[in-house]
Design a protein around this nucleic acid. Structure first.
Length: 262
DNA sequence: AAAAACGACAACCGCCGACAC
DNA sequence: GGTGTCGGCGGTTGTCGTTTT
């Protein structure tokens, strides 16, 4: 994670720049300009949270939702670890989903989203006062013991590619713990929560164009290669979507991602 | 129709740990 | 060992579309 850990992991070059490298860098900037007035950190975040081609967009499935709740009970707000169990979802996405939807839903059903235990009487009264939705108030609230029914959760885990070993670990630790709730019964599973499908600013744009852009950029890289007889300057550093190094332009660039370079 | 309130989610901020020098 | 830089992470804020008044 240090300054040049990415170089070590990916066997990237360090040290003095060779004339060839200088030429590639020079040509890239001549061709594309210094470009964005963004810091590397911002670019990296944009890539990780939005532009990555392997991201799964759209609403969270019921399986994913159950999994998030279950993992949150074990891991707390360790969003990156939770995200690691949900392929195609980012920590930011899960965090937003939790904060905007799941927390509220849990509270409406009498569950403390922090402790995952039933709210006490005062909190429940407060929640009733806060809640505008009378339908939810009438839903049964019951103390339940197994938060992750083995079959359902395991199926969820398999569907989402989650780590079954992790599931086994926390399921076995819960099975004997009193006072937990079975979310599958408490959550409204009928609705489409429309997370990720609603509004928005840049998201629609990216949803529509991401794959096209991917093609565009990679094609551009190919074209550039053929025109300039140079490898894409970032191609050898960024693992590719394909096996062709000449189109290795769109995977997570761990480090050395400087906006001025774009 | 306009303004206000709300909701969703992208982006930013700041801290921390790891590493190079 | 000290310092600087960077990436990872979680919390928070900002922005913009939608809904309500």
């Amino acid at each position: 994670m240090g300054r040049h850990s990415c170089c070590l992991k990916q066997k990237l070059r360090k040290g003095l720049w060779s004339p060839e490298e200088d030429e590639k860098l020079f040509n890239h900037i001549i061709r594309f300009g210094v470009g964005l007035q963004r810091c590397g950190k911002s670019c990296r975040l944009r890539w990780i949270n939005y532009l990555r081609p392997d991201l799964k967009r759209g609403s969270f499935s019921q399986e994913e939702e159950d999994l998030i709740i279950g993992l949150h009970e074990v891991l707390g707000n360790r969003w990156s670890q939770i995200a690691a169990q949900l392929p195609g979802r980012t920590d930011n996405e899960i965090k937003n989903f939790w904060n905007s939807c799941l927390k509220k839903k849990l509270r409406q059903r009498g569950i403390d989203p922090t402790t995952h235990k039933p709210l006490n009487e005062n909190e429940r009264e407060q929640e009733k006062l806060n809640s505008d939705n009378s339908v939810h108030e009438n839903l049964p609230i019951k103390p339940i013991f197994d938060p992750f029914p083995t079959l359902e959760f395991q199926a969820s885990a398999e569907q989402t590619g989650a780590n079954i070993i992790l599931y086994d670990q926390f399921h076995s630790s819960f099975i004997s713990a009193p006072g937990f709730c079975e979310y599958s019964n408490l959550m409204d599973v009928s609705g489409n929560y429309s997370y990720g499908s609603s509004s928005s600013n840049t998201s629609n744009w990216n949803c529509n164009i991401r794959s096209d852009m991917n093609n565009l950029v990679c094609n551009e890289a190919l074209n550039w290669k053929s025109e300039s007889k140079l490898e894409p300057i970032v191609g050898t550093q960024w693992p590719s979507l394909s096996q062709d190094p000449s189109v290795a332009c769109f995977d997570v660039p761990r480090g050395e991602f400087d906006a001025d370079f774009l």
